[in-house]
């Protein structure tokens, strides 16, 4: 299985690469302006990054094309997640109370991304902005005390996103979330 990490300039982009490598998939970090036709992959992870997605979407390269045209499972993380949501019609705004470091995730809707996970666990965050006004067509899967939209699944498409950082050691069950994502990829290939 080949799952590449699209680099949106995150502090933890390389951590995503490491988690995937540890899970035994073929992986590589690629710049976010890599043409979709050059991506012969089974799935993508859209990394986080320092851009304020709402006003600096130009720094998000070809993320929109990956979401629109590749028809493969994609997991957006932090800025990658925010971009995915805003591209599909949600709004972004500066968070009233931003989250840095520890937070408690509460799962609202179980699906394949969160299968076999507890209802609530510790995650690590690092974001100034937040997603709001989620359109029809997108399911909200989880929240924290200060952030209503922590995870989403796009209905009818294998697109997933998380605001928190499953690739970080301090996040509980982080590797399990990646494993679940890889199961989704496996199922999608069939």
């Amino acid at each position: 299985m080949r799952v590449y990490v699209v680099d949106n300039g995150g502090q933890w982009t390389h951590r995503e690469w490491r988690v995937l490598k540890y899970l035994g998939v073929e992986t590589k970090i690629v710049p976010n302006n890599t043409p979709p036709k050059d991506l012969d992959v089974d799935a993508l992870v859209l990394s986080g990054g320092s851009p304020h997605v709402s006003v600096e979407s130009n720094k998000m390269g070809l993320n929109s094309e990956y979401i629109d045209s590749l028809n493969i499972p994609i997991l957006g993380i932090c800025a990658g997640f925010q971009f995915m949501c805003s591209h599909l019609g949600a709004e972004l705004r500066p968070a009233e109370i931003p989250e840095f470091g520890q937070a408690t995730l509460i799962i609202d809707e179980y699906n394949e991304l969160f299968s076999n996970l507890p209802k609530s666990f510790t995650v690590w965050e690092s974001h100034n902005d937040e997603v709001t006004n989620i359109p029809e067509g997108i399911n909200i899967l989880a929240h924290t005390e200060n952030c209503a939209v922590e995870a989403i699944k796009v209905k009818d498409k294998p697109l997933y996103g998380v605001q928190f950082h499953p690739e970080v050691e301090n996040t509980e069950h982080g590797a399990d979330i990646f494993k679940n994502f890889l199961s989704i990829v496996e199922a999608w290939k069939k």
């Binding site: 951590r15 520890q102 690590w124 970080v168 050691e169 301090n170």
Partner: peptide, 8 residues
Amino acid sequence: SIDGMSAA
């Protein structure tokens, strides 16, 4: 920490 990239 484990890797220095996040810490409590």
